[in-house]
Amino acid sequence: MSRIVAGRMTHRHEGELVVFHIGMQINRWWRPDLWAPVFAAMPGMLRELSRDPDSGFLGYELLLGAGGPYVVQYWSSIDKLYAYAMDPAQQHRPAWTRFNGLARKAPGAVGIWHETFLVERAESVYVSTRPMGLPKATELVPVTRAGDRAQARFAQGRTSATAR
């Protein structure tokens, strides 16, 4: 387990920032034969991306929502995100093909979804938490006096949330 970082922290990041949510909705819990293969595909993709510093992948958080698990991913470029998604040599494309085959055999058993955000500015604060979210994916820095309030951090520019 990661250590707790005491105090008020925020993130610092310069350049393009993409936040990508991707998840699955388990519609037939009693049919793990239908949803388990979809669930099992994500860890391999996350490992693959985490090991490739040129992929544009900055990091992720795995969460559990009302319908099932989902992942919040952070990327340095929308083009790199799309390049990964379309590359047949990477794990995503074959997993997508397998999902489509499964969806044809058992329509509605499991759903998948994603949302993509190109972030112009971002503000964050983490008080006495483990490293997580945006600062874990970018850079964790203390909140400065000039960035003491959310409005101030948000106003300080493009995706950089600390005082300059």
Rank of each mutant, 00 (worst) to 15 (best):
S124A: 13
Y70T: 04
W35R: 09
A6F: 11
L63A: 13
R3K: 13
W113R: 10
Y74G: 00
L58V: 02
A161L: 02
L64V: 09
A161Y: 03
H21N: 14
P131D: 10
E123S: 09
R164Y: 01
A6N: 13
P69N: 10
P131Q: 09
G56C: 01
V38E: 09
R51G: 08
S2P: 11
A40H: 09
H11A: 14
W30A: 08
E16D: 10
Q73W: 03
T138S: 03
Q91P: 11
A137M: 04
V72L: 08
V141N: 02
N27Y: 03
R130F: 07
D87V: 05
R104P: 01
W35G: 01
F99H: 09
S55E: 00
M45I: 11
T97P: 00
D79L: 05
D33S: 07
T144K: 10
S124F: 06
G67I: 02
F39S: 11
R149Y: 05
M1A: 13
E14Y: 04
G56Y: 08
P37R: 04
P43I: 15
L63R: 14
A122N: 02
Y74Q: 02
V141I: 03
Y60L: 07
D79W: 01
S76P: 01
V141E: 04
R164F: 06
R3Y: 13
R145K: 15
L34P: 00
I4T: 15
R12T: 12
P142W: 12
A137G: 05
N27A: 10
W30T: 07
A36C: 03
V5H: 11
R51C: 02
A89S: 14
W113M: 10
L62F: 07
G133Y: 05
E14N: 12
R121C: 07
H92V: 15
E61V: 01
G133W: 03
R93I: 12
G59R: 01
M86P: 00
